[in-house]
Design a protein around this nucleic acid. Sequence first.
DNA 1: TGGGTTATGTAGCAAGTGCTACAGAGAGCC
DNA 2: GGCTCTCTGTAGCACTTGCTACATAACCCA
Lengths: 178, 178
Amino acid sequence: MSRRDELAEGATDYALEHGLIGLSLRPLAAALDTSDRMLNYHFGSKDALIAAVLAVSNERSLVTIRALPVSASIRQGVLDLWDAFTEPQVARCQRMYVEAASLGLFGREPYAASVRQSNESWLAALATHLERSGASKARAPRLATLVDATFNGLMLDRPLDGDTAGRRVVVDLADALS
Amino acid sequence: MSRRDELAEGATDYALEHGLIGLSLRPLAAALDTSDRMLNYHFGSKDALIAAVLAVSNERSLVTIRALPVSASIRQGVLDLWDAFTEPQVARCQRMYVEAASLGLFGREPYAASVRQSNESWLAALATHLERSGASKARAPRLATLVDATFNGLMLDRPLDGDTAGRRVVVDLADALS
DNA sequence: TGGGTTATGTAGCAAGTGCTACAGAGAGCC
DNA sequence: GGCTCTCTGTAGCACTTGCTACATAACCCA
């Protein structure tokens, strides 16, 4: 693994823990036992670093979703997706996605572009899972968009740790969609 | 209206247009034809200013929702809420709410507290509308939570201007809930 | 042993941050 | 007139930001 990739992985871990909004190079560099000088050397700019971090985080999320076994029904598929979504490893990636999406709300780069790209592959992964769980090829993408929006909205409003309220909402949604 | 209230209204307009993340006192003060010195005098700190801005914005959103005429059914109630939600005046307030929620994701104040408070009254308003549109007293709050999460998630992922895709998702949701 | 590419450390710049010390203006009251 | 109280302008502090100029070290290949 190249030094750049090592730093990208480390920076991703750091951003997942400390947040993306207000992330600054010097504390990040200190945590990675290097210097802001080195981060700029390997990535060229803070924006490029951020883009790399978001790509790494998105890839980590996708791996989990793609590895999900087929669910027995659409209803169960939605619930299984929620369980995957709230699994701490994935949840932190999604939390960072939410931060990136907020930063991109006014079109600010590199956030807006990264978010568009992440969202595309993420929706595709959700749709694939729902399709393999019984949704028609036509319905799966629309279901995926709905499910994704609801999940992200829950992430936004509810504190992420041990929220049973969130799951109740998802059960309501899954029931309604059956 | 006191000078402080005038400034709070003006600051809210400015924040709605330019975003909450990265808002800084000097450009804001310049736009309001005053100085950072004055903002700090009237509000005491930037955090207090932000809290005031979020309160004003939340109140503006609530006024619109509360003024909504009763809908003919739950399904129609959800659609009417979406139309209210995407009406530019309200949509910008909700966009700022999303920013505040992101800033509060890691517990950072004053965002986390403001978001909790805003969300509470907002959910209550949604539930009231859904109840008046035919939902049972028991079901209305849970419906409201689901609808709110979906709306906010859509705000997050889709560019807010002229998104017909967002409405299609809401129609799916409304259909499923009937 | 050279030479060139890659990687790293030191120091610093210009700009922007929230906030404050200090003095002054203006109004109302005795 | 004097007095206080509310409000405002000037200037600046201490700090952080992303980024860079410059010199140095480490390495591989000829």
